[in-house]
Design a protein around this nucleic acid. Structure first.
Lengths: 198, 198
DNA sequence: ACTTGACTTGACCGACCGGTCTAATATACT
DNA sequence: AGTATATTAGACCGGTCGGTCAAGTCAAGT
Protein backbone atom coordinates (compact mmCIF):
# COMPACT_ATOMS: atom_id res chain seq x y z
CA UNK A 1 0.00 0.00 0.00
CA UNK A 2 1.28 3.45 -0.87
CA UNK A 3 1.97 6.04 1.72
CA UNK A 4 -0.68 8.12 3.27
CA UNK A 5 -1.41 11.25 1.25
CA UNK A 6 -0.35 13.54 4.04
CA UNK A 7 2.91 11.73 4.51
CA UNK A 8 3.54 11.74 0.80
CA UNK A 9 3.12 15.51 0.76
CA UNK A 10 5.38 15.84 3.76
CA UNK A 11 8.13 13.68 2.34
CA UNK A 12 8.04 15.40 -1.02
CA UNK A 13 8.03 18.87 0.45
CA UNK A 14 10.90 18.00 2.69
CA UNK A 15 12.95 16.71 -0.18
CA UNK A 16 12.24 19.73 -2.32
CA UNK A 17 12.72 22.33 0.40
CA UNK A 18 15.96 20.72 1.39
CA UNK A 19 17.25 20.38 -2.12
CA UNK A 20 16.36 23.88 -3.23
CA UNK A 21 14.72 26.45 -0.98
CA UNK A 22 11.47 27.40 0.64
CA UNK A 23 10.55 30.21 -1.71
CA UNK A 24 11.66 28.39 -4.81
CA UNK A 25 9.36 25.43 -4.31
CA UNK A 26 5.68 26.02 -4.96
CA UNK A 27 2.73 24.09 -3.65
CA UNK A 28 1.81 23.12 -7.18
CA UNK A 29 5.17 21.47 -7.70
CA UNK A 30 4.95 19.63 -4.43
CA UNK A 31 1.49 18.41 -5.33
CA UNK A 32 2.36 17.17 -8.76
CA UNK A 33 5.46 15.38 -7.53
CA UNK A 34 3.51 13.79 -4.70
CA UNK A 35 0.59 12.92 -6.98
CA UNK A 36 -1.84 14.93 -4.95
CA UNK A 37 -4.31 17.62 -5.90
CA UNK A 38 -4.30 21.16 -4.63
CA UNK A 39 -7.53 20.61 -2.78
CA UNK A 40 -6.17 17.61 -0.96
CA UNK A 41 -3.10 19.55 -0.03
CA UNK A 42 -5.12 22.30 1.57
CA UNK A 43 -7.23 19.74 3.29
CA UNK A 44 -4.20 18.61 5.26
CA UNK A 45 -2.19 21.80 5.51
CA UNK A 46 -3.87 25.16 6.06
CA UNK A 47 -0.96 27.06 4.52
CA UNK A 48 2.51 26.81 3.12
CA UNK A 49 3.88 28.10 6.38
CA UNK A 50 2.12 25.30 8.20
CA UNK A 51 3.65 22.82 5.81
CA UNK A 52 7.07 24.26 6.51
CA UNK A 53 6.55 23.77 10.22
CA UNK A 54 5.50 20.19 9.66
CA UNK A 55 8.50 19.56 7.46
CA UNK A 56 10.81 21.01 10.07
CA UNK A 57 9.32 18.89 12.82
CA UNK A 58 9.41 15.84 10.63
CA UNK A 59 13.07 16.30 9.81
CA UNK A 60 13.89 17.09 13.41
CA UNK A 61 12.27 13.87 14.52
CA UNK A 62 14.13 11.83 11.96
CA UNK A 63 17.35 13.43 13.06
CA UNK A 64 16.75 12.92 16.72
CA UNK A 65 15.95 9.27 16.18
CA UNK A 66 18.48 8.78 13.42
CA UNK A 67 22.15 9.62 13.52
CA UNK A 68 21.87 12.05 16.36
CA UNK A 69 20.66 9.21 18.54
CA UNK A 70 23.45 7.01 17.22
CA UNK A 71 26.16 9.63 17.47
CA UNK A 72 25.27 10.76 20.95
CA UNK A 73 24.94 7.26 22.24
CA UNK A 74 25.73 7.18 25.93
CA UNK A 75 27.90 4.14 25.41
CA UNK A 76 30.31 6.07 23.21
CA UNK A 77 33.10 8.10 24.81
CA UNK A 78 31.76 11.66 24.85
CA UNK A 79 34.31 13.26 22.55
CA UNK A 80 34.03 10.43 20.06
CA UNK A 81 30.39 11.32 19.66
CA UNK A 82 31.46 14.54 18.03
CA UNK A 83 33.47 12.69 15.44
CA UNK A 84 30.60 10.34 14.85
CA UNK A 85 28.33 13.29 14.27
CA UNK A 86 30.72 14.91 11.82
CA UNK A 87 31.07 11.64 9.98
CA UNK A 88 27.33 11.24 9.76
CA UNK A 89 26.98 14.70 8.27
CA UNK A 90 29.74 14.00 5.79
CA UNK A 91 28.33 10.74 4.51
CA UNK A 92 24.85 12.10 4.30
CA UNK A 93 25.88 15.16 2.34
CA UNK A 94 28.06 13.11 0.08
CA UNK A 95 25.25 10.67 -0.65
CA UNK A 96 22.88 13.52 -1.36
CA UNK A 97 25.35 15.11 -3.70
CA UNK A 98 25.88 11.89 -5.57
CA UNK A 99 22.14 11.64 -6.06
CA UNK A 100 21.26 15.19 -6.96
CA UNK A 101 24.57 16.64 -8.02
CA UNK A 102 24.28 19.36 -5.44
CA UNK A 103 25.09 19.45 -1.76
CA UNK A 104 21.87 20.45 -0.04
CA UNK A 105 23.41 21.44 3.28
CA UNK A 106 21.44 21.53 6.48
CA UNK A 107 17.70 22.06 6.09
CA UNK A 108 17.53 23.95 9.36
CA UNK A 109 20.42 26.22 8.54
CA UNK A 110 19.08 26.83 5.07
CA UNK A 111 15.64 27.74 6.30
CA UNK A 112 17.02 29.81 9.16
CA UNK A 113 18.91 32.12 6.86
CA UNK A 114 16.21 32.23 4.24
CA UNK A 115 13.06 32.87 6.20
CA UNK A 116 13.92 33.89 9.73
CA UNK A 117 13.86 37.56 8.82
CA UNK A 118 10.26 37.48 7.71
CA UNK A 119 8.62 34.65 9.59
CA UNK A 120 8.82 34.79 13.34
CA UNK A 121 7.00 31.52 13.84
CA UNK A 122 9.37 29.48 11.72
CA UNK A 123 12.36 31.33 13.14
CA UNK A 124 11.32 30.47 16.68
CA UNK A 125 10.88 26.84 15.82
CA UNK A 126 14.25 26.59 14.17
CA UNK A 127 15.77 28.30 17.14
CA UNK A 128 14.25 25.72 19.43
CA UNK A 129 15.70 22.94 17.31
CA UNK A 130 19.14 24.49 17.46
CA UNK A 131 18.71 24.82 21.19
CA UNK A 132 17.94 21.15 21.45
CA UNK A 133 20.83 20.14 19.23
CA UNK A 134 23.12 22.26 21.31
CA UNK A 135 22.00 20.44 24.43
CA UNK A 136 23.27 17.17 23.02
CA UNK A 137 26.68 18.69 22.65
CA UNK A 138 26.32 20.07 26.13
CA UNK A 139 25.65 16.66 27.66
CA UNK A 140 28.63 15.19 25.89
CA UNK A 141 30.91 17.96 27.13
CA UNK A 142 29.69 17.62 30.69
CA UNK A 143 30.43 13.94 30.63
CA UNK A 144 33.79 14.45 29.02
CA UNK A 145 34.81 16.78 31.81
CA UNK A 146 33.44 14.48 34.46
CA UNK A 147 35.52 11.65 33.05
CA UNK A 148 38.53 13.88 32.90
CA UNK A 149 38.83 13.55 29.14
CA UNK A 150 39.07 17.30 28.66
CA UNK A 151 39.96 20.20 30.93
CA UNK A 152 37.32 22.29 32.59
CA UNK A 153 35.49 24.84 30.45
CA UNK A 154 32.19 26.63 29.92
CA UNK A 155 30.22 23.66 28.66
CA UNK A 156 27.11 25.58 27.70
CA UNK A 157 28.87 28.18 25.61
CA UNK A 158 31.26 25.67 24.08
CA UNK A 159 28.39 23.41 23.10
CA UNK A 160 26.67 26.24 21.27
CA UNK A 161 29.94 27.20 19.66
CA UNK A 162 30.38 23.67 18.40
CA UNK A 163 26.96 23.66 16.86
CA UNK A 164 27.72 26.99 15.24
CA UNK A 165 30.94 25.59 13.86
CA UNK A 166 29.18 22.58 12.42
CA UNK A 167 26.62 24.78 10.72
CA UNK A 168 29.36 27.02 9.43
CA UNK A 169 31.28 24.12 8.01
CA UNK A 170 28.19 22.87 6.25
CA UNK A 171 27.55 26.33 4.89
CA UNK A 172 31.02 26.57 3.44
CA UNK A 173 30.87 23.04 2.09
CA UNK A 174 27.58 23.78 0.39
CA UNK A 175 28.94 26.96 -1.13
CA UNK A 176 31.88 24.99 -2.44
CA UNK A 177 29.55 22.15 -3.32
CA UNK A 178 32.10 19.82 -1.83
CA UNK A 179 31.28 17.45 1.05
CA UNK A 180 34.99 16.89 1.64
CA UNK A 181 35.06 20.25 3.37
CA UNK A 182 33.02 18.63 6.11
CA UNK A 183 35.46 15.80 6.44
CA UNK A 184 38.51 18.05 6.44
CA UNK A 185 37.28 20.78 8.75
CA UNK A 186 34.73 18.90 10.79
CA UNK A 187 37.02 17.12 13.26
CA UNK A 188 38.40 20.47 14.42
CA UNK A 189 35.12 20.88 16.24
CA UNK A 190 36.86 19.24 19.18
CA UNK A 191 39.41 22.02 19.37
CA UNK A 192 36.84 24.67 20.17
CA UNK A 193 36.73 25.77 23.75
CA UNK A 194 35.29 28.65 25.68
CA UNK A 195 36.69 29.28 29.11
CA UNK A 196 34.37 29.59 32.06
CA UNK A 197 34.09 33.25 32.98
CA UNK A 198 33.54 34.29 36.58
CA UNK B 1 22.98 66.17 -5.82
CA UNK B 2 21.32 62.80 -5.45
CA UNK B 3 23.04 59.57 -6.22
CA UNK B 4 23.42 58.16 -9.63
CA UNK B 5 20.44 56.04 -10.62
CA UNK B 6 22.47 52.89 -10.92
CA UNK B 7 24.05 53.39 -7.55
CA UNK B 8 20.67 54.11 -6.02
CA UNK B 9 19.37 50.81 -7.36
CA UNK B 10 22.44 49.03 -6.12
CA UNK B 11 22.27 50.48 -2.64
CA UNK B 12 18.56 49.80 -2.31
CA UNK B 13 18.83 46.25 -3.58
CA UNK B 14 21.70 45.55 -1.26
CA UNK B 15 19.77 46.81 1.71
CA UNK B 16 16.67 44.82 0.83
CA UNK B 17 18.46 41.61 -0.08
CA UNK B 18 20.44 41.77 3.07
CA UNK B 19 17.50 42.58 5.27
CA UNK B 20 15.19 39.96 3.83
CA UNK B 21 16.19 37.57 1.06
CA UNK B 22 16.85 37.32 -2.63
CA UNK B 23 13.59 35.66 -3.58
CA UNK B 24 11.46 37.78 -1.29
CA UNK B 25 12.51 41.08 -2.81
CA UNK B 26 11.09 41.88 -6.22
CA UNK B 27 12.42 44.26 -8.80
CA UNK B 28 9.29 46.34 -8.49
CA UNK B 29 9.92 46.88 -4.81
CA UNK B 30 13.52 47.80 -5.39
CA UNK B 31 12.49 50.25 -8.06
CA UNK B 32 9.84 52.00 -6.06
CA UNK B 33 12.08 52.31 -3.03
CA UNK B 34 14.89 53.65 -5.18
CA UNK B 35 12.55 55.95 -7.09
CA UNK B 36 13.39 54.39 -10.37
CA UNK B 37 11.23 53.01 -13.13
CA UNK B 38 11.25 49.44 -14.29
CA UNK B 39 12.62 50.40 -17.66
CA UNK B 40 15.49 52.32 -16.14
CA UNK B 41 16.29 49.35 -14.01
CA UNK B 42 16.55 47.06 -16.98
CA UNK B 43 18.64 49.63 -18.74
CA UNK B 44 21.35 49.17 -16.12
CA UNK B 45 20.88 45.56 -15.15
CA UNK B 46 20.03 42.91 -17.72
CA UNK B 47 18.47 40.65 -15.10
CA UNK B 48 17.83 40.12 -11.45
CA UNK B 49 20.69 37.67 -11.34
CA UNK B 50 22.98 40.31 -12.73
CA UNK B 51 21.81 42.70 -10.05
CA UNK B 52 22.59 40.10 -7.43
CA UNK B 53 26.11 39.75 -8.74
CA UNK B 54 26.56 43.51 -8.67
CA UNK B 55 25.22 43.67 -5.13
CA UNK B 56 27.57 40.93 -4.02
CA UNK B 57 30.57 42.64 -5.57
CA UNK B 58 29.52 45.96 -4.13
CA UNK B 59 29.22 44.55 -0.64
CA UNK B 60 32.47 42.64 -1.00
CA UNK B 61 34.27 45.82 -1.97
CA UNK B 62 32.86 47.73 0.96
CA UNK B 63 33.89 44.95 3.25
CA UNK B 64 37.36 44.65 1.86
CA UNK B 65 37.91 48.39 2.21
CA UNK B 66 35.92 48.71 5.41
CA UNK B 67 36.38 46.73 8.56
CA UNK B 68 38.19 43.89 6.94
CA UNK B 69 40.92 46.32 6.00
CA UNK B 70 40.88 47.74 9.51
CA UNK B 71 40.72 44.42 11.26
CA UNK B 72 43.44 42.78 9.25
CA UNK B 73 45.72 45.74 9.52
CA UNK B 74 49.32 44.60 9.30
CA UNK B 75 50.19 46.79 12.24
CA UNK B 76 47.93 44.82 14.55
CA UNK B 77 49.24 41.67 16.22
CA UNK B 78 47.91 38.83 14.05
CA UNK B 79 45.69 37.16 16.59
CA UNK B 80 44.23 40.45 17.71
CA UNK B 81 42.95 40.92 14.20
CA UNK B 82 40.56 38.07 14.77
CA UNK B 83 39.09 39.77 17.80
CA UNK B 84 38.82 42.99 15.89
CA UNK B 85 36.94 41.20 13.16
CA UNK B 86 34.54 39.58 15.60
CA UNK B 87 33.94 42.92 17.26
CA UNK B 88 33.22 44.55 13.95
CA UNK B 89 30.66 41.91 13.10
CA UNK B 90 29.06 42.27 16.49
CA UNK B 91 28.69 46.04 16.35
CA UNK B 92 27.45 45.96 12.82
CA UNK B 93 24.80 43.36 13.50
CA UNK B 94 23.74 45.10 16.64
CA UNK B 95 23.38 48.41 14.87
CA UNK B 96 21.38 46.77 12.09
CA UNK B 97 19.10 45.13 14.60
CA UNK B 98 18.50 48.37 16.39
CA UNK B 99 17.51 49.94 13.11
CA UNK B 100 15.37 47.22 11.61
CA UNK B 101 14.46 45.11 14.59
CA UNK B 102 15.93 42.06 12.95
CA UNK B 103 19.45 40.77 12.73
CA UNK B 104 20.21 40.45 9.02
CA UNK B 105 23.22 38.20 9.34
CA UNK B 106 25.86 37.95 6.65
CA UNK B 107 24.69 38.77 3.14
CA UNK B 108 27.09 36.26 1.65
CA UNK B 109 26.08 33.47 3.96
CA UNK B 110 22.43 34.25 3.45
CA UNK B 111 22.70 34.20 -0.31
CA UNK B 112 24.92 31.15 -0.29
CA UNK B 113 22.36 29.02 1.46
CA UNK B 114 19.42 30.47 -0.40
CA UNK B 115 20.53 30.41 -4.00
CA UNK B 116 23.61 28.29 -4.38
CA UNK B 117 21.56 25.19 -5.14
CA UNK B 118 19.95 26.73 -8.18
CA UNK B 119 22.34 29.36 -9.46
CA UNK B 120 25.82 28.19 -10.30
CA UNK B 121 27.02 31.63 -11.26
CA UNK B 122 26.12 33.27 -7.99
CA UNK B 123 27.35 30.26 -6.04
CA UNK B 124 30.75 30.45 -7.71
CA UNK B 125 31.04 34.15 -6.95
CA UNK B 126 30.15 33.68 -3.33
CA UNK B 127 32.63 30.86 -3.13
CA UNK B 128 35.34 33.12 -4.47
CA UNK B 129 34.50 35.72 -1.86
CA UNK B 130 34.73 33.16 0.91
CA UNK B 131 38.02 32.04 -0.55
CA UNK B 132 39.31 35.58 -0.38
CA UNK B 133 38.05 36.12 3.14
CA UNK B 134 39.71 32.91 4.19
CA UNK B 135 43.00 34.13 2.80
CA UNK B 136 42.97 37.06 5.20
CA UNK B 137 42.71 34.65 8.08
CA UNK B 138 45.44 32.63 6.48
CA UNK B 139 47.85 35.55 6.35
CA UNK B 140 47.19 36.37 9.96
CA UNK B 141 47.84 32.80 11.03
CA UNK B 142 51.05 32.58 9.07
CA UNK B 143 52.32 35.71 10.71
CA UNK B 144 51.22 34.56 14.13
CA UNK B 145 53.24 31.39 13.75
CA UNK B 146 56.21 33.26 12.38
CA UNK B 147 56.18 35.52 15.42
CA UNK B 148 55.84 32.53 17.69
CA UNK B 149 52.47 33.73 19.01
CA UNK B 150 50.86 30.37 18.39
CA UNK B 151 52.20 26.87 17.89
CA UNK B 152 52.63 25.38 14.43
CA UNK B 153 49.48 24.21 12.64
CA UNK B 154 47.83 23.79 9.26
CA UNK B 155 47.29 27.45 8.52
CA UNK B 156 45.26 26.95 5.38
CA UNK B 157 42.76 24.55 6.89
CA UNK B 158 42.56 26.45 10.15
CA UNK B 159 41.90 29.70 8.33
CA UNK B 160 38.99 28.15 6.48
CA UNK B 161 37.71 26.62 9.68
CA UNK B 162 37.77 30.02 11.33
CA UNK B 163 35.76 31.54 8.55
CA UNK B 164 33.30 28.67 8.83
CA UNK B 165 33.03 29.27 12.53
CA UNK B 166 32.36 32.95 12.06
CA UNK B 167 29.63 32.22 9.53
CA UNK B 168 28.15 29.62 11.84
CA UNK B 169 28.10 32.00 14.75
CA UNK B 170 26.35 34.61 12.65
CA UNK B 171 23.85 32.00 11.50
CA UNK B 172 23.00 31.04 15.05
CA UNK B 173 22.87 34.64 16.18
CA UNK B 174 20.49 35.46 13.36
CA UNK B 175 18.28 32.54 14.21
CA UNK B 176 18.18 33.71 17.80
CA UNK B 177 17.89 37.28 16.57
CA UNK B 178 20.48 38.19 19.16
CA UNK B 179 23.77 39.86 18.28
CA UNK B 180 25.15 39.02 21.71
CA UNK B 181 25.68 35.49 20.46
CA UNK B 182 28.41 36.93 18.26
CA UNK B 183 30.06 38.62 21.20
CA UNK B 184 29.85 35.59 23.44
CA UNK B 185 30.90 32.91 21.00
CA UNK B 186 32.96 34.92 18.58
CA UNK B 187 36.24 35.16 20.52
CA UNK B 188 36.47 31.37 20.65
CA UNK B 189 37.48 31.59 17.02
CA UNK B 190 41.04 31.76 18.30
CA UNK B 191 40.73 28.35 19.91
CA UNK B 192 40.19 26.57 16.63
CA UNK B 193 43.16 24.67 15.31
CA UNK B 194 43.77 22.03 12.72
CA UNK B 195 46.99 20.12 12.97
CA UNK B 196 49.24 19.83 9.96
CA UNK B 197 48.85 16.36 8.51
CA UNK B 198 51.77 14.63 6.84
C1' DA C 1 20.16 73.12 -36.35
C1' DC C 2 20.47 68.41 -36.36
C1' DT C 3 21.80 63.86 -34.97
C1' DT C 4 23.12 60.56 -31.80
C1' DG C 5 22.81 57.70 -27.99
C1' DA C 6 22.27 57.36 -23.12
C1' DC C 7 18.55 57.37 -20.10
C1' DT C 8 13.49 57.38 -18.53
C1' DT C 9 8.65 56.30 -18.63
C1' DG C 10 4.93 53.23 -17.77
C1' DA C 11 1.91 50.18 -20.10
C1' DC C 12 2.07 45.52 -21.04
C1' DC C 13 3.21 40.29 -21.23
C1' DG C 14 2.67 35.37 -20.06
C1' DA C 15 3.64 32.60 -16.28
C1' DC C 16 3.17 31.49 -11.88
C1' DC C 17 2.13 32.35 -6.97
C1' DG C 18 -0.57 30.89 -2.57
C1' DG C 19 -5.01 30.08 -1.63
C1' DT C 20 -10.38 29.28 -2.29
C1' DC C 21 -14.39 26.88 -3.54
C1' DT C 22 -17.86 23.73 -5.15
C1' DA C 23 -18.86 19.37 -6.47
C1' DA C 24 -17.83 14.66 -6.61
C1' DT C 25 -16.40 10.45 -4.30
C1' DA C 26 -14.83 7.13 -1.00
C1' DT C 27 -15.40 5.47 3.75
C1' DA C 28 -17.61 4.48 8.20
C1' DC C 29 -21.23 4.38 11.34
C1' DT C 30 -26.28 3.66 12.40
C1' DA D 1 -30.12 1.67 3.01
C1' DG D 2 -29.12 6.06 4.54
C1' DT D 3 -26.46 9.53 6.23
C1' DA D 4 -22.55 11.99 8.05
C1' DT D 5 -17.77 12.71 7.42
C1' DA D 6 -13.19 12.54 5.45
C1' DT D 7 -10.94 13.02 1.34
C1' DT D 8 -10.20 14.15 -3.53
C1' DA D 9 -10.68 16.66 -7.74
C1' DG D 10 -9.54 20.56 -10.40
C1' DA D 11 -11.40 24.93 -12.09
C1' DC D 12 -10.76 29.35 -10.54
C1' DC D 13 -9.18 33.81 -8.06
C1' DG D 14 -6.61 38.17 -7.54
C1' DG D 15 -2.13 39.39 -7.27
C1' DT D 16 2.72 39.37 -8.24
C1' DC D 17 6.64 37.77 -10.59
C1' DG D 18 10.74 38.79 -13.90
C1' DG D 19 11.08 40.77 -18.05
C1' DT D 20 9.84 43.45 -22.65
C1' DC D 21 8.96 47.26 -25.42
C1' DA D 22 7.62 51.36 -27.97
C1' DA D 23 7.65 56.00 -27.12
C1' DG D 24 9.71 59.71 -25.51
C1' DT D 25 13.18 63.07 -22.93
C1' DC D 26 17.38 65.31 -22.75
C1' DA D 27 22.25 66.61 -22.94
C1' DA D 28 26.43 66.47 -25.67
C1' DG D 29 28.80 66.41 -30.27
C1' DT D 30 28.95 68.15 -34.74
Amino acid sequence: MEMDTKERILATARELFHGRSYADVGIKEICSMANVQKGSFYHFFPSKQDLAMAVIDNMADDWANGFVAEAFDEDLPPMERLDYMVDAVYYWQKAAKNLEGRMPGCLFGNLALEVSTRDEVIRARLNAIFEKASSRFHEALEQAIERGDIPFLDTKATATAMLAYLEGVILLAKTRNDPDVVRNLGPAIKSIRIEQKH
